[in-house]
Design a protein around this nucleic acid. Structure first.
Lengths: 172, 172
DNA sequence: GAGAACTTGTTGATGCTTCAAGTACGCTAG
DNA sequence: CTAGCGTACTTGAAGCATCAACAAGTTCTC
């Protein structure tokens, strides 16, 4: 999402603390980078493996768990997704045979989602190409210092978000 | 989008150049930062001004142009959006009275989009709160060096994307 | 100037994301 | 045991994003 948060050319020069020139350049550049990057990654994944980025995330999380089997709430927490989003997503993935839902014997409200062999094959086939693209477009061009800097920036921002939190996820 | 691009725990240790530990941490952290950040920004904008981030971008670009009036293609280029996305988006914005479409006299295929007074009022009312949120969640916590680092990372990545480009925008 | 080739912008289909509401079950107190 | 409250998950509606296909206009070429 590209936004221009310029000092008041058209907008009032009141008490708003507009972004200065450096901040604005960095902000716009960052937003453009993210937009372009995810567009490319999504395109590569879709073209080569018929998966969306969201599919990929879900599948990776499922491979990370014993028997590819996990409670919906737990997966929602680990992905930081709303449960409703996950539920809709499963419906689509289930139709494609990537996962199946199973009832939870110990809690009749609950549900498991289980990776199918097809789902596992899909993620294993998709992963190398995806990593390669991430490398090519990003990490192969960054110095170690830049990688560190990126992480520490993310840490700062995530920390600030936590502190300013009006409650995090809507339905978590 | 949160992805785990781990070295082959479940996946083959073939010739794939998996991300190392630092890269992976940075990558996941970055993705989470972006997801949380945009969720928060979108929520603030929606709650306080009844605009989406996409609305905001479009409106800002329209205020940046004489008489709030611009050819669709030109705006698409400046936003780096597909024309179809823009067209769909205008339809929604037009329904809400934020913009209007006008025919182009010099090229009968063409169309202008024009900011309405309502649209202008909306963006002027929304901007201060949005910048304040961007500051609060991000820039107020970053050092000047981090802002610079962010920009140079974005420059690197955008440059790599350009060079590896299979054609950029689908319909541009 | 006629036809091919390209441009401008729209549309429809499909998938993704969010919010609000709903269903069904479990837990705890009295 | 039942009433009320909290939890687990689903559903529906609406906006958003992408792709493919399209109509209509312009430009290029011979």
């Amino acid at each position: 999402m590209m936004c221009q948060l310029f000092p008041g050319k058209v907008f009032a020069m009141n008490d708003t603390r507009w972004l200065d020139a450096d901040e604005q350049r960095a902000w716009r550049r960052y937003l453009r980078m993210h937009a372009e990057l995810t567009t490319r990654l999504a395109r590569q994944l879709q073209a080569d493996s018929d998966l969306s980025l969201a599919d990929f995330e879900v599948l990776v999380n499922l491979t990370d768990v014993p028997e590819g089997r996990i409670r919906v709430t737990e997966l929602a927490k680990s992905l930081q997704w709303e449960k409703s989003r996950l539920s809709h997503h499963f419906s689509r993935m289930e139709k494609r045979g990537l996962v199946v839902r199973e009832n939870c014997p110990s809690d009749a409200r609950g549900a498991f989602v289980v990776l199918t062999p097809q789902g596992r094959a899909a993620i294993e086939a998709a992963a190398p190409g995806h990593v390669e693209t991430v490398r090519t477009l990003m990490f192969d061009g960054l110095t170690d210092e830049q990688v560190d800097a990126l992480e520490s920036i993310a840490d700062v921002v995530l920390d600030r978000i936590d502190r300013h939190d009006d409650g995090g996820l809507r339905s978590a």
